[in-house]
Protein backbone atom coordinates (compact mmCIF):
# COMPACT_ATOMS: atom_id res chain seq x y z
CA UNK A 1 0.00 0.00 0.00
CA UNK A 2 2.71 2.44 0.97
CA UNK A 3 4.51 2.03 -2.34
CA UNK A 4 1.41 2.85 -4.33
CA UNK A 5 0.95 6.32 -2.94
CA UNK A 6 2.04 9.77 -3.99
CA UNK A 7 5.66 10.60 -3.19
CA UNK A 8 6.07 14.41 -3.32
CA UNK A 9 8.82 15.78 -5.54
CA UNK A 10 9.52 18.13 -8.44
CA UNK A 11 11.07 15.91 -11.10
CA UNK A 12 10.07 16.03 -14.76
CA UNK A 13 7.62 13.18 -14.09
CA UNK A 14 5.99 15.02 -11.21
CA UNK A 15 5.47 18.26 -13.09
CA UNK A 16 4.30 16.80 -16.40
CA UNK A 17 0.65 17.52 -17.22
CA UNK A 18 -1.46 14.63 -15.84
CA UNK A 19 -3.45 14.23 -19.05
CA UNK A 20 -0.16 13.82 -20.88
CA UNK A 21 0.99 11.24 -18.32
CA UNK A 22 -2.19 9.20 -18.76
CA UNK A 23 -1.76 9.26 -22.54
CA UNK A 24 1.87 8.18 -22.27
CA UNK A 25 0.85 5.37 -20.00
CA UNK A 26 -1.71 4.05 -22.54
CA UNK A 27 0.76 4.44 -25.39
CA UNK A 28 3.48 2.54 -23.56
CA UNK A 29 1.22 -0.27 -22.39
CA UNK A 30 0.03 -0.82 -25.94
CA UNK A 31 3.59 -0.78 -27.26
CA UNK A 32 4.58 -3.32 -24.62
CA UNK A 33 1.80 -5.64 -25.72
CA UNK A 34 2.91 -5.40 -29.33
CA UNK A 35 6.64 -5.91 -28.85
CA UNK A 36 8.67 -9.03 -28.12
CA UNK A 37 11.20 -10.08 -25.51
CA UNK A 38 14.06 -7.63 -26.34
CA UNK A 39 11.69 -4.66 -26.47
CA UNK A 40 10.26 -5.60 -23.09
CA UNK A 41 13.68 -5.95 -21.53
CA UNK A 42 14.71 -2.51 -22.79
CA UNK A 43 11.45 -1.09 -21.50
CA UNK A 44 11.96 -2.75 -18.12
CA UNK A 45 15.47 -1.27 -17.82
CA UNK A 46 14.24 2.21 -18.72
CA UNK A 47 11.39 2.03 -16.20
CA UNK A 48 13.68 0.73 -13.45
CA UNK A 49 16.00 3.65 -14.20
CA UNK A 50 13.14 6.14 -13.91
CA UNK A 51 11.93 4.54 -10.66
CA UNK A 52 15.48 4.70 -9.27
CA UNK A 53 15.47 8.45 -10.05
CA UNK A 54 12.17 8.75 -8.20
CA UNK A 55 13.68 7.15 -5.12
CA UNK A 56 12.18 3.67 -5.54
CA UNK A 57 15.22 1.41 -5.89
CA UNK A 58 15.15 -2.27 -6.92
CA UNK A 59 15.46 -3.51 -3.33
CA UNK A 60 12.44 -1.52 -2.20
CA UNK A 61 10.52 -2.73 -5.25
CA UNK A 62 11.18 -6.40 -4.55
CA UNK A 63 10.36 -6.21 -0.85
CA UNK A 64 7.15 -4.25 -1.40
CA UNK A 65 5.91 -6.27 -4.37
CA UNK A 66 6.51 -9.73 -2.91
CA UNK A 67 2.95 -10.91 -3.48
CA UNK A 68 2.84 -9.63 -7.00
CA UNK A 69 6.16 -11.25 -7.87
CA UNK A 70 4.89 -14.52 -6.43
CA UNK A 71 1.83 -14.33 -8.66
CA UNK A 72 4.08 -13.56 -11.59
CA UNK A 73 6.19 -16.64 -10.88
CA UNK A 74 3.03 -18.71 -10.72
CA UNK A 75 1.87 -17.43 -14.10
CA UNK A 76 5.33 -18.09 -15.48
CA UNK A 77 5.37 -21.74 -14.44
CA UNK A 78 1.76 -22.32 -15.47
CA UNK A 79 2.46 -21.04 -18.91
CA UNK A 80 5.78 -22.84 -19.16
CA UNK A 81 4.17 -26.15 -18.17
CA UNK A 82 1.36 -26.06 -20.71
CA UNK A 83 3.08 -24.83 -23.89
CA UNK A 84 4.05 -27.70 -26.24
CA UNK A 85 7.44 -27.82 -28.05
CA UNK A 86 10.98 -29.16 -27.67
CA UNK A 87 11.56 -30.52 -24.16
CA UNK A 88 14.10 -28.60 -22.08
CA UNK A 89 13.77 -30.20 -18.64
CA UNK A 90 11.93 -33.45 -17.93
CA UNK A 91 10.60 -34.29 -14.47
CA UNK A 92 8.63 -37.48 -13.78
CA UNK A 93 7.63 -37.73 -17.41
CA UNK A 94 6.41 -34.14 -17.40
CA UNK A 95 8.39 -31.95 -19.76
CA UNK A 96 9.02 -28.22 -19.74
CA UNK A 97 9.69 -26.86 -23.20
CA UNK A 98 11.99 -24.21 -24.63
CA UNK A 99 9.10 -22.54 -26.47
CA UNK A 100 7.18 -22.54 -23.23
CA UNK A 101 10.05 -20.84 -21.45
CA UNK A 102 10.19 -18.08 -24.07
CA UNK A 103 6.45 -17.39 -24.16
CA UNK A 104 6.07 -17.63 -20.37
CA UNK A 105 8.96 -15.22 -19.92
CA UNK A 106 7.40 -12.77 -22.37
CA UNK A 107 3.99 -12.86 -20.68
CA UNK A 108 5.32 -12.35 -17.18
CA UNK A 109 7.70 -9.64 -18.34
CA UNK A 110 4.80 -7.79 -19.95
CA UNK A 111 2.92 -7.96 -16.70
CA UNK A 112 5.84 -6.61 -14.76
CA UNK A 113 6.37 -3.73 -17.19
CA UNK A 114 2.70 -2.73 -17.18
CA UNK A 115 2.69 -2.84 -13.40
CA UNK A 116 5.77 -0.65 -13.15
CA UNK A 117 4.15 1.83 -15.54
CA UNK A 118 1.20 2.10 -13.18
CA UNK A 119 3.56 2.45 -10.27
CA UNK A 120 5.37 5.40 -11.88
CA UNK A 121 2.04 7.11 -12.46
CA UNK A 122 0.81 6.65 -8.89
CA UNK A 123 4.13 7.61 -7.33
CA UNK A 124 4.35 10.90 -9.22
CA UNK A 125 0.69 11.93 -9.34
CA UNK A 126 -1.77 13.00 -6.68
CA UNK A 127 -4.93 10.94 -6.85
CA UNK A 128 -7.00 14.11 -7.23
CA UNK A 129 -5.02 14.97 -10.35
CA UNK A 130 -5.84 11.58 -11.84
CA UNK A 131 -9.45 12.25 -10.90
CA UNK A 132 -9.33 15.58 -12.72
CA UNK A 133 -7.80 13.90 -15.77
CA UNK A 134 -10.52 11.25 -15.81
CA UNK A 135 -13.07 14.04 -15.72
CA UNK A 136 -11.34 15.86 -18.57
CA UNK A 137 -11.11 12.79 -20.80
CA UNK A 138 -14.79 12.03 -20.31
CA UNK A 139 -16.00 15.53 -21.07
CA UNK A 140 -16.46 14.93 -24.81
CA UNK A 141 -18.02 11.48 -24.30
CA UNK A 142 -21.81 11.73 -24.37
CA UNK A 143 -24.03 10.06 -21.73
CA UNK A 144 -21.26 10.03 -19.14
CA UNK A 145 -21.72 12.64 -16.38
CA UNK A 146 -18.01 13.34 -15.97
CA UNK A 147 -18.38 15.57 -12.93
CA UNK A 148 -20.40 12.97 -11.10
CA UNK A 149 -17.81 10.34 -11.98
CA UNK A 150 -15.05 12.59 -10.65
CA UNK A 151 -16.90 13.11 -7.37
CA UNK A 152 -17.51 9.38 -7.05
CA UNK A 153 -13.83 8.61 -7.60
CA UNK A 154 -12.81 11.18 -5.02
CA UNK A 155 -15.27 9.87 -2.44
CA UNK A 156 -14.31 6.25 -3.07
CA UNK A 157 -10.66 7.08 -2.43
CA UNK A 158 -11.72 8.83 0.75
CA UNK A 159 -13.79 5.88 1.96
CA UNK A 160 -11.01 3.32 1.55
CA UNK A 161 -8.87 4.20 4.60
CA UNK A 162 -12.07 4.76 6.60
CA UNK A 163 -13.32 1.25 5.81
CA UNK A 164 -9.92 -0.30 6.53
CA UNK A 165 -9.89 1.39 9.95
CA UNK A 166 -13.45 0.23 10.64
CA UNK A 167 -12.58 -3.29 9.50
CA UNK A 168 -9.67 -3.46 11.93
CA UNK A 169 -11.84 -2.23 14.79
CA UNK A 170 -14.68 -4.64 14.01
CA UNK A 171 -12.28 -7.59 13.79
CA UNK A 172 -10.86 -6.73 17.19
CA UNK A 173 -14.30 -6.26 18.70
CA UNK A 174 -15.53 -9.60 17.32
CA UNK A 175 -12.42 -11.48 18.40
CA UNK A 176 -12.49 -9.90 21.85
CA UNK A 177 -15.82 -11.65 22.37
CA UNK A 178 -14.49 -14.92 20.93
CA UNK A 179 -16.43 -14.53 17.68
CA UNK A 180 -13.55 -16.32 15.98
CA UNK A 181 -14.54 -19.55 17.72
CA UNK A 182 -17.78 -19.78 15.76
CA UNK A 183 -17.83 -22.87 13.54
CA UNK A 184 -20.43 -21.86 10.97
CA UNK A 185 -18.53 -19.98 8.22
CA UNK A 186 -21.61 -18.08 7.05
CA UNK A 187 -22.21 -16.76 10.57
CA UNK A 188 -18.56 -15.77 10.87
CA UNK A 189 -18.63 -13.91 7.59
CA UNK A 190 -21.87 -12.13 8.46
CA UNK A 191 -20.64 -11.31 11.96
CA UNK A 192 -17.64 -9.57 10.45
CA UNK A 193 -19.22 -7.90 7.45
CA UNK A 194 -22.49 -6.71 8.94
CA UNK A 195 -21.11 -4.43 11.70
CA UNK A 196 -18.55 -3.12 9.26
CA UNK A 197 -21.18 -2.26 6.68
CA UNK A 198 -23.53 -0.77 9.24
CA UNK A 199 -20.81 1.52 10.53
CA UNK A 200 -19.65 2.44 7.06
CA UNK A 201 -23.14 3.27 5.84
CA UNK A 202 -23.70 5.47 8.86
CA UNK A 203 -20.55 7.43 8.07
CA UNK A 204 -21.79 7.68 4.49
CA UNK A 205 -25.01 9.26 5.76
CA UNK A 206 -23.01 11.73 7.84
CA UNK A 207 -20.89 12.54 4.85
CA UNK A 208 -23.92 13.20 2.68
CA UNK A 209 -25.14 15.71 5.29
CA UNK A 210 -21.72 17.39 5.38
CA UNK A 211 -21.70 17.68 1.60
CA UNK A 212 -25.20 19.14 1.51
CA UNK A 213 -24.25 21.60 4.24
CA UNK A 214 -21.51 22.83 1.94
CA UNK A 215 -23.83 23.35 -1.02
CA UNK A 216 -22.82 20.28 -3.03
CA UNK A 217 -23.77 20.68 -6.66
CA UNK A 218 -22.66 19.06 -9.88
CA UNK A 219 -22.23 22.40 -11.54
CA UNK A 220 -18.80 22.89 -10.01
CA UNK A 221 -15.72 24.91 -10.82
CA UNK A 222 -13.51 22.92 -13.19
CA UNK A 223 -10.28 21.37 -12.00
CA UNK A 224 -7.06 23.04 -13.02
CA UNK A 225 -4.10 21.45 -14.74
CA UNK A 226 -0.45 22.37 -14.39
CA UNK A 227 2.05 21.80 -17.14
CA UNK A 228 5.80 22.27 -17.28
CA UNK A 229 5.95 23.04 -21.00
CA UNK A 230 7.99 19.94 -21.84
CA UNK A 231 4.99 17.77 -22.78
CA UNK A 232 5.71 18.07 -26.51
CA UNK A 233 9.23 16.79 -26.15
CA UNK A 234 8.30 13.95 -23.86
CA UNK A 235 5.45 12.76 -26.06
CA UNK A 236 7.69 12.97 -29.15
CA UNK A 237 10.49 10.99 -27.54
CA UNK A 238 8.06 8.40 -26.19
CA UNK A 239 6.59 7.98 -29.68
CA UNK A 240 10.03 7.34 -31.15
CA UNK A 241 10.81 4.95 -28.29
CA UNK A 242 7.55 3.04 -28.78
CA UNK A 243 8.03 2.86 -32.54
CA UNK A 244 11.57 1.63 -31.91
CA UNK A 245 10.62 -1.24 -29.62
CA UNK A 246 7.62 -2.24 -31.72
CA UNK A 247 9.72 -2.38 -34.92
CA UNK A 248 12.43 -4.29 -33.09
CA UNK A 249 9.73 -6.89 -32.42
Amino acid sequence: MTLFSYHPGDTLWHTLDVRCKCLLMCLLSLAVLKTGLPGNIICLCVLMGILKMLGVGPVKLVTQLKCFLLLLTLIFFCRWAVTPGHPMVTLHGFSLTRQGFASAGLVSLRFLVVMLLGLILTVTTRSMEIKAAVQWFFKPVPFIPEKRVAVMVGLALKFMPLILDNAREVTHAVNARCGNLRKNPVRRLVNLAWPLLKKTFQSADDLSLAMQARCYSENRTDARFFSNGKEGWVVGLTFIFCAGIVLMG
Binding site: M1, L3, F4, C22, M25, C26, S29, V32, L33, C67, F68, L71, R110, F111, V114, M115, L117, G118, L121, T122, T125, S127, I130, A133, V134, V149, M152, V153, A156, L157
Partner: peptide, 23 residues
Protein backbone atom coordinates in the same frame (compact mmCIF):
# COMPACT_ATOMS: atom_id res chain seq x y z
CA UNK B 1 -17.82 0.82 -14.33
CA UNK B 2 -16.22 3.64 -12.35
CA UNK B 3 -14.30 1.08 -10.31
CA UNK B 4 -12.88 -0.51 -13.46
CA UNK B 5 -12.14 2.92 -14.87
CA UNK B 6 -10.19 3.88 -11.76
CA UNK B 7 -8.13 0.73 -12.10
CA UNK B 8 -7.46 1.31 -15.79
CA UNK B 9 -6.50 4.93 -15.16
CA UNK B 10 -3.74 3.76 -12.83
CA UNK B 11 -5.21 3.94 -9.31
CA UNK B 12 -4.20 0.89 -7.27
CA UNK B 13 -7.63 -0.67 -6.77
CA UNK B 14 -7.25 -4.11 -8.34
CA UNK B 15 -6.20 -7.22 -6.42
CA UNK B 16 -2.98 -6.75 -4.49
CA UNK B 17 -2.87 -2.99 -5.10
CA UNK B 18 -2.25 -3.29 -8.84
CA UNK B 19 -3.81 -1.34 -11.65
CA UNK B 20 -3.52 -0.46 -15.30
CA UNK B 21 -5.20 -1.35 -18.56
CA UNK B 22 -2.77 -4.26 -18.91
CA UNK B 23 -4.58 -6.04 -16.10
Amino acid sequence: AVYLLMGFAGLPVFAGGTSGIGK
